[in-house]
Design a binder for these strands. Structure first.
Lengths: 243, 243
DNA sequence: TGAATATTTTTGGCATACCAAATACCAGAA
DNA sequence: TTCTGGTATTTGGTATGCCAAAAATATTCA
């Protein structure tokens, strides 16, 4: 069946062979609204005000220039993600996580990253592991992380994401990214990262070394303890912000 | 402010004290549809047929006796869960996971349960840990698990869920339950559980013992390896079912 | 007869209108 | 002034109708 069509009209097929990649399915308003709202929620500082942050369907639909229907579908999606919660006849409130939830999420993250490390020791290529050092090539004894916090913080997150990607497990990548999205806005987390920059770099390098040495147990342990350390920091120093 | 109201009109307040429990918020059609569709999807055997399973909005709305609007919102939610995928102008297809995805999910599960075990060794009460044995009290040398597979399988799942609950981390509980929902339908998983019943029980008991001994590292390792064993089984014996 | 083409049907996307519950607001009574 | 009742408004929930793209079907022409 298929070969007949292929060999049929060469001149005509020629233009069909050109990079037609099933063009952008022109994302629907629903998805556009979802992305827009998600970005807006992640951008705002949820923990800045004592009053709960509310969303209004009609206002949003007017704001984004679409009807309420796609907006409502987008909100249903965000609710599944755990970013908002709609209360019938009351409104849509942006979810604020408690300190305990944040700590729990970081622990889950530690578990997943630890598993990623384990997998990496058995499957990743040497060169890919070594490449992880590049994220920190701009830091050293002459250029301390704690003196360039913003820059180091970005390298830090990039490193963790690259690390997990090396596991070649899309599930682990997706789950940890999800967690990161929920946790990023928590102020104490950022502070925790800053306070820990001094010990952070050596720990990262130790993890890389264990991975290169294919020391499964050690890599797993180091990765776990590193992130678990952040959890402990937040648990100890973080204060409960409004309920 | 508050005490004044309390001491004001006793006779009137008397009737207000009657069990008024903020009646059931009567779940919306959207949520009812979500639950109904989710259950239907989980109940059906996705991997039984080569052809993709499709859903039809209009058919569903007629079937459930509601309009398309709540149906569409429910489907948007299910899509976030990863149970279905809607293709514009094509239809809504029930997602079928590949063997690799299933294996990855089981590995993530292993990571999370391992972390739960770790937490349990430091926080759970002795009696709660010991109570885990009850799930298997009906099995022993005189009544082997492999001779009562169905019964043991249920006890097995109940044990794992109870174990994770002991961590007192709602995040871990939710994440593992999610994974379980996605993985349960995969036939090779069930077969794997059956083939492994013989070694399963001793491994479970070993985990419980490590927990009771508050041996963090050991409990963590045993919990991890136990579930990782299932992942390996599926990876080795499971066959790719229709792409 | 077969393939290109026109037409009908199907299907998800979106806008709009209306409903009912919850709330906010306001006027009148104590 | 304060409390009570009632009314107007707000807000999420749902039903309907129409649109356009894609697929399925019918039709026409060589």
């Amino acid at each position: 069946m298929s070969e007949r069509k292929q060999t049929k009209a060469p001149p005509v097929m020629a233009e069909a062979d050109i990079a037609i990649v099933r063009i952008a399915p022109e994302t629907s308003f629903k998805n556009k609204a979802y992305e827009a709202l998600k970005e807006a929620i992640l951008k705002m500082d949820i923990y800045a005000t004592p009053e709960p942050v509310m969303l209004d369907e009609r206002a949003l639909s007017e704001r984004l220039g679409v009807s309420r229907t796609p907006i409502r579908e987008a909100i249903a999606m965000l609710e599944q993600d755990g970013f908002v919660k709609t209360v019938p006849r009351r409104g849509i409130v942006v979810v604020r996580r408690t300190k305990a939830e944040i700590v729990d999420m970081i622990r889950a993250w530690a578990a997943l990253e630890s598993m990623a490390a384990r997998l990496i020791t058995t499957t990743a290529r040497k060169k890919d592991i070594t490449a992880l050092r590049d994220f920190f090539k701009d830091f050293g004894k002459d250029r301390l992380p704690q003196d360039h916090i913003e820059e180091y913080s970005k390298a830090n997150i990039a490193f963790h994401q690259a690390l997990i990607s090396l596991s070649e497990s899309q599930v682990l990548v997706d789950m940890t990214n999800d967690i990161l999205l929920h946790v990023r806005g928590y102020r104490q987390l950022t502070i925790g990262r800053k306070d820990r920059t001094a010990t952070s770099l050596p720990e990262h390098l130790a993890i890389i070394e264990a991975l290169e040495a294919r020391d499964t147990e050690l890599a797993e342990k180091l990765a776990r303890d590193h992130t678990l350390g952040l959890a402990t920091y937040v648990e100890t120093h973080g204060q409960e912000l409004f309920s």
